[in-house]
Write a protein that binds this DNA or RNA. Structure first.
Lengths: 109, 109
DNA sequence: TTTATTCATTGCAATATTACGATTAAAGGG
DNA sequence: CCCTTTAATCGTAATATTGCAATGAATAAA
C-alpha cells in the first residue's frame, strides 16, 4: 500500500520518524552540512556544490523548509538559505531523547 | 526516477542517510523503543504491541537487522530480539557528529 | 522594453516503500 | 506421524520518493 499508518503511533513516534525521514537522503544531509560549514547564508551555489539538477535541489530544499530546519529569504533574483537555529535545537532535543535511550541492558541474545 | 544517486555523495553522508532512513518510519521507532523499554529480549509480542500485521512487522525487523541495530536469536519456534548495544553506540557516534554541528552562526536570514 | 538570471513549479517516468493475504519452513507437543 | 505455533518469505496492490526536462515568475541588467 505504500501508505504509512500514522494513526496507530504516538505523536512523538511520528515526529521522530518525520525528522529522521528528512535526513534519510544523502542530498539533504549534504545540503545541511554545507549550510553549517559556510556558517552563513547560501545564495545559490548549492546546485554547483551538490551534483544534482536545479529542480531536484529545489525540491529537497522545500522539504527541509517544510520541517522548519532551514529558512529562505529572497534577495533580488536569488534566494538565501540558512539553518533555522531555533528549530534545529528543538529537533536535536527530540532526536536525542530517542537516540540516548540506554542500555542498562546486557546482551541477552 | 526514484533512484537515489549515492555515487555523488561521501560515504559518511550515505551512512548518515542510511541510519536516518531506517528511523524514518514510526513502526521502526516504536519497535526500538519497545526493545529498550523491556530492557531484555522480546520473543514475539511485537505484533500485538504494535498494531501491524505479522508480515509487516517481520519486514521492519529485517531492515533493523540488516543495519545491525538489533539482533535476533532463534529459541524453539520463536525468535528473540534485542538491541545490538555495540552497533547502537556506533550509530549514535555517527548521528551525533551530524546533529551536533554547531552553530556559531547568527541568524542571517 | 528586451534579455538574462535565478529559483519555484509542473508533469512525468523510474524506482522504492509500505502493508498484508497466502504460503512456507521449522520446531514442539500430542 | 499429524497438528499447532511462530516467524520468514512470496506475491502483489497502493502509494511515496527521486530526478529531471520544460516551463513559469520575478527581479536585475542592458
Amino acid at each position: 500500500m505504500g501508505l504509512t499508518k500514522t494513526e496507530i503511533f504516538t505523536d512523538k513516534q511520528n515526529q521522530i520518524a518525520q525528522y529522521a525521514k528528512v535526513f534519510g537522503h544523502p542530498a539533504r544531509v549534504a545540503i545541511l552540512q554545507y549550510l553549517f560549514k559556510l556558517n552563513a547564508c547560501v545564495c545559490g551555489d548549492l546546485v554547483d556544490e551538490i551534483g544534482l539538477a536545479q529542480p531536484t535541489i529545489s525540491q529537497h530544499l522545500k522539504e527541509l523548509k517544510n520541517l522548519g530546519l532551514i529558512k529562505g529569504n529572497v534577495e533580488g533574483t536569488s534566494v538565501c538559505y540558512c539553518i533555522d537555529v531555533e528549530n534545529w535545537k528543538k529537533m536535536k532535543t527530540v532526536m536525542s531523547t530517542f537516540l540516548d535511550q540506554d542500555l542498562n541492558q546486557k546482551d541477552c541474545c
